[in-house]
């Protein structure tokens, strides 16, 4: 994956943005880079980047999350100063809430994004209900761009069926990602998936699955 100073990860609700963000952050951290992850999700009440506080601190990744994330106060308040975050050293990864509703939160930070070297990347998943067709995904991408006032710079194909994902599932999505790229004129920047499934994938981005169910975590520990 090619990174800019500021990497804004957007996409359809449930396309797997959070898992992508966690993987990007850890990849950069492993390279010895300084990384800040910003949880800008104003849509999800739980199951979000802020869940990975412990993992991030183990890898010296700085996490900036809304003050009420994962609390019982359901207020989409963004209380951080993006200007000072952006002026700090290292890379910044921003996990945006799903769809155009989530992308709206980006608008107020436009001047910061324009000032720095930044890119908006869009995560797509062929297996999500309302973006199964390339046309639907393309339409949603336009909605996201309109909502945040930024142009998308590339597509991350994160097509997956949760725990049912395998090589075939991922390979069946290549044509879908191709079609989105053709229709939008954007380039594919990554095909994400477990390393063993990416043998034939264009722009492979091997990932680990961090967003897991509580029982899946327990079963893994037991094994």
């Amino acid at each position: 994956m090619e990174y800019k100073k500021i990497n804004i990860i957007t996409g359809h609700y449930g396309s797997g943005k959070t898992n992508i963000c966690v993987n990007m952050a850890l990849e950069l951290a492993e390279r010895g880079e300084q990384v800040t992850v910003v949880d800008l999700d104003i849509v999800n009440p739980y199951f979000r980047t802020a869940d990975f506080e412990k993992l991030f601190s183990q890898h010296d990744v700085r996490l900036i999350a809304p003050m009420y994330a994962n609390s019982n106060l359901d207020i989409p308040a963004l209380n951080f100063d993006m200007t000072s975050i952006a002026s700090s050293d290292g890379y910044i990864i921003i996990d945006v809430g799903g769809d155009d509703e989530g992308a709206k939160a980006l608008g107020r930070y436009l001047p910061v994004f324009e000032k720095h070297d930044s890119q908006l990347l869009c995560v797509v998943n062929k297996y999500r209900y309302l973006t199964k067709e390339a046309d639907e995904a393309t339409e949603l991408l336009a909605d996201i761009e309109r909502a945040c006032g930024l142009r998308c710079a590339g597509i991350i194909n994160n097509s997956n069926l949760g725990s049912d994902t395998d090589k075939t599932v991922i390979e069946h999505s290549f044509e879908y990602a191709d079609e989105i790229c053709r229709k939008t004129g954007l380039s594919l920047v990554a095909t994400a998936g477990k390393a063993e499934f990416l043998e034939n994938a264009p722009m492979p981005f091997p990932i680990k699955i961090f967003v897991r169910k509580i029982w899946e975590e327990f079963e893994q520990e037991q094994a």
């Binding site: 297996y127 069926l161 049912d164």
Partner: peptide, 12 residues
């Protein structure tokens, strides 16, 4: 197969 949130699946 499609990937859905529980709430979306109830609605559909």
């Amino acid at each position: 197969k499609t990937l859905m949130k529980g709430n979306e699946a109830l609605a559909e």
